[in-house]
Design a protein around this nucleic acid. Structure first.
Lengths: 269, 269
DNA sequence: CCTAATTGTTTCAAATAGTGAAATGATAGT
DNA sequence: ACTATCATTTCACTATTTGAAACAATTAGG
């Protein structure tokens, strides 16, 4: 599962070290890293120093431990603004949230995983990276299935192979075949459900965000609990969600492909 | 103020390219990059390929343009969780927000700039561009000045030199001497004001977050507009903010220096 | 206070990965 | 079809990275 074994290039290597540090989800010491890293101590040490001096890692002197640095947060803000649907979708999500009043997620596919890029909580206001930035499995979440269903076969094939199937609940789809059947249903229905497939008691309805040419851009979902709501009740939200999804796609296309900008004027020193 | 000129190491170089891409704040083409980059085309090209294949950049084929990739968002989520005050401060900010009802920011210093790591909106939201991950100047924002005021002289000196002083409004402090005087006042007063120094009509009161040993961890601020509130009214919030700042510092120290974890169990293949 | 053990840091010749000027493709405009 | 503009590849040259092992610093135990 490691994508970092054959790290030939230096940059690749550095990023794999970053990932390694991230995977600990707590400050980590050099020797701990050595044990799980394919690189020898000296190499790792120098790499950590470089990353640290670049602000990609922070170093806690008293504990002699490295964590991911806040320079990443800064970069991610730009990434989030540039490459995610979140900024364009924001007003639309706000409106949807107001109208529906349940927890809403906006997700995109990132490397066979679901990446949540925005969220509206039932009550609380905007939480940025608290939820945005989180990843989850594609095959057993509403947003994940909604996106998979509309992926071209070749891409779908790849993504399905990369899933590490795990039975989170009794309702989790256990085989690729089951999943494919489900995806087929989703395609005809137009949207997906999560019937407690990821977490017990949690259900959701998820609507893909598609361009006019049916390319998958992302998905939105409305989540609730079995104790509060039934799937039928959620289904009633489908039209509103469909409308929101279309609006997001529409806005995003205009935003990402604005009228040809004249870049005639070169900026000279 | 490029910090990337003397990029000797490959990693350093790669990161400077990332920054370069980020600075455009829109998808950017190779040739545009060439014009502002110290590296020749071939080198840049290969670097972009590497970064792209690593998911740090996304590439829009139709426009032949690079943007920051969503892998950054994923990494940043961990960084935000690990290295920012935001997660620990969250409940405290929530409470403060509820009690005050104005826009609240939580910021930290990142490389001589102010980095906003969390935010609570006012009930009637003030239209302002500031979100988690956003950066701003340290010398003319409330949170910035609050932190600078309690920096040790050596560090302060460095940071002051790195500011690129710009007169955003008629109230912006224009010289290092003015700023130093202001910082001195802040030190005795215990907190900082922003008197429309960054944006016209926007004022704020900012409280530093200090450890018991007076090391600067960050700052919180309450923002309002001149049309709604006066500085005197904001000043009334100082005690509450002080309390919150102390609470955050307290919690953070406990959180960042937890009791020694046993890591005895090695994970073996 | 000393010794042993652990972890962090530096060294240096060898190996490799990165460089960049210039040639080659690809594409859009006239 | 011709030209201009940009992206991509080439290749001899160079500088950076490598990693085993020595060294230093810190911690734990007696």
């Amino acid at each position: 599962m490691q994508s970092s074994q054959t790290a030939s290039g230096t940059v690749k290597k550095a990023l794999s070290v970053l990932d390694q540090v991230a995977s600990f989800e707590r400050p980590v010491r050099l020797n701990e890293l050595v044990e799980v890293s394919p690189y020898p101590k000296g190499t790792l040490y120098r790499m950590l120093q470089t990353l640290r001096s670049e602000g990609m890692l922070t170093y806690d002197e008293t504990k002699q431990a490295y964590s991911l640095g806040i320079r990443l947060v800064r970069l991610a803000h730009t990434a989030w603004t540039q490459s995610s649907l979140a900024p364009t979708a924001r007003p639309i999500l706000d409106a949807l949230s107001k109208s529906i009043g349940e927890t809403i997620h906006l997700a995109q596919l990132d490397n066979a995983q679901v990446l949540y890029v925005d969220k509206r909580n039932a009550q609380r206001p905007v939480e940025m990276f608290s939820q945005a930035g989180k990843v989850g499995p594609a095959y057993c979440t509403g947003v994940g299935k909604a996106m998979l269903a509309f992926l071209p076969e070749t891409e779908l094939q790849q993504v399905l192979e990369q899933q590490s199937y795990h039975r989170f609940t009794p309702h989790t789809l256990g085989s690729v075949q089951e999943l494919r059947d489900e995806l087929s249903n989703i395609r005809t229905r137009g949207y997906a459900y999560d019937r407690e497939e990821h977490e017990p008691g949690i259900i959701c309805i998820a609507m893909p965000i598609l361009t006019r040419t049916k390319r998958v851009m992302g998905a939105i979902s409305v989540t609730s609990t079995t104790s509060r709501t039934s799937l039928d009740q959620l289904e009633a939200l489908a039209p509103k969600m469909h409308q929101a999804a279309d609006a997001i796609a529409e806005t995003a296309v205009h935003w990402r492909f604005p009228v040809e900008q004249k870049t005639k004027e070169k900026m000279e020193g």
